[in-house]
Amino acid sequence: MSLTVFAMTGASLVGLGIYGLLALPQLLRRIISFNLIGSGLFLFLGAAGARGEAVDAVPQALIITGIVVALAASALAVGLVVALARRSGLVVLPDEANPR
């Protein structure tokens, strides 16, 4: 029962992250939303891996790999956001600035 609770939490986090990624223009907040999608999927996968008789170590190892790769991707994304802001003074994508 608890596993179902965690899996549904993971599914909701993915939905919330997708909303943030699509709806929020500020790029740092998009990076946060992207991380929510990732960790929501990890939670879902981890709950699924704990469903059998014994806790499965393979999804856990995959999730640890995923967490590290998510940090690397976030660092690259943050670097791009800072470079964009330094160059153009924008914290949103150029075609989303000042919508009319």
Binding site: V14, G15, L16, G17, I18, Y19, L21, L22, A23, L24, P25, Q26, A85, G89, L90, V91, V92, E96, A97, N98, P99
Partner: peptide
């Protein structure tokens, strides 16, 4: 830097997420 524009709720994004 210029502040990000304020946005209201986005029904399309909400539908996709849900």
């Amino acid at each position: 830097v210029e502040r990000a524009p304020r946005v209201g709720p986005n029904p399309m994004a909400a539908t996709t997420g849900i």
